[in-house]
């Protein structure tokens, strides 16, 4: 009988899922994804999570709940650190424990620890631990991982070319339609979750706006910019966002920046402020912060987006006669 492994469509999913999906499928397991985020998933998530957690963590719990009775294992790795001397986010570090204590009658979790904070020496062992839930054959695991890495690289390059993984589905690349380009900033699990983000990317696209996201950036360029900070930004997500913003502000080839943040995010409390200051100071770049939480009223988001794009178009029309970029 094949082993059924459930992958929740939340948090690191948007960054890594082709890697883990291919990995387990190559090992002969059946991979089951939870449904794209919907009201039911959000509701069960909110009901089954500690109150202080942020919206994406609550949504993640909802996805775990969605998979609960369908699979043999649920994939909830303990992601501590993926780059040297950097961390993901405190809530990622304690995710398996949080899930285990909040939701009853769960199948066993694949909660192997990923921790490359000191070095990557443990990579091989970590991969083996992940694979050992399906097979004990190290060679098979190694091959599956190599194949998975290739898939992962393809996925990343697709996104770089402008195909966004909305709910994990890469959408079609569209040709440049308008002369307005907006950078959509935010943690990948916020901006690519269609329900959680209230369709932010799609709404902008429908208005014919070109979109740039942090996932489209060259990691080296991002790192180079982030390293000019006085103090090292040791949150990986924060580092990526800051580096991206600094690069975009300097290049001046975008017209505005929209930052989607979930209410109560500790990392964003610093990052948003830093980015906003840099955007205003250096590039006089229009900046819009959108905060999402459990509320489903889209009126507020729509108003802000509409006003923002109106303003950008207006500025653009006037650019011919007046310099608005300082």
């Amino acid at each position: 009988m094949t082993v059924k492994i459930g992958i929740p469509r939340g948090l690191w999913f948007y960054d890594y899922y082709p890697l883990w999906k291919t990995f387990y499928e190559e090992l002969g397991a059946e991979v089951v994804l939870s449904n794209p985020t919907n009201k039911q998933i959000l509701d069960t998530g909110v009901k089954n999570t500690v109150d202080e957690a942020c919206l994406p963590v609550k949504i993640f719990h909802g996805h775990v709940f969605d998979l609960k009775d369908k699979v043999d294992y649920i994939f909830v790795p303990k992601m501590m650190s993926v780059y040297k001397r950097e961390y993901i986010c405190p809530k990622f570090c304690g995710l398996p424990e949080m899930v285990n204590h909040s939701i009853k009658d769960l199948p066993p979790l694949i909660d192997t620890e990923i921790n490359f904070n000191k070095s990557r020496n443990s990579l091989k062992k970590t991969i083996y631990n992940f694979g050992s839930y399906v097979t004990k054959n190290p060679i098979k695991i190694k091959r599956a991982y190599e194949k998975a890495l290739k898939e992962y690289e393809v996925y990343k390059s697709e996104i770089k070319e402008g195909s966004f993984p909305i709910d994990g589905q890469l959408n079609s690349k569209e040709k440049k339609q308008s002369d307005i380009t907006i950078a959509v900033m935010g943690h990948s699990y916020n901006i690519y979750d269609k329900y959680g983000s209230m369709g932010l990317i799609n709404k902008l696209k429908e208005n014919g706006i070109n979109i740039v996201t942090p996932e489209m950036m060259d990691y080296k360029v991002v790192n180079q910019h982030a390293s000019t900070l006085e103090k090292k930004m040791f949150w990986s997500y924060g580092r990526k966002l800051l580096g991206t913003a600094m690069y975009l502000i300097e290049e001046k080839n975008i017209d505005g920046m929209v930052y989607l943040s979930s209410f109560g995010c500790g990392i964003d409390s610093i990052i948003v402020d830093l980015i906003e200051r840099k955007a205003r100071k250096k590039g006089r770049l229009p900046f819009l912060l959108i905060t999402v939480d459990e509320h489903t009223g889209e009126a507020g988001v729509n108003t802000r987006l509409e006003a923002f794009t109106d303003m950008l178009e207006w500025r653009k029309r006037n650019e011919g006669n007046l310099s608005t970029h300082g």
Partner: peptide, 13 residues
């Protein structure tokens, strides 16, 4: 500025 909206902010949540 110069007769057009150049920036705005609205309260968040």
């Amino acid at each position: 500025r110069d007769g057009i909206i150049s920036d705005f902010a609205m309260n968040t949540v």
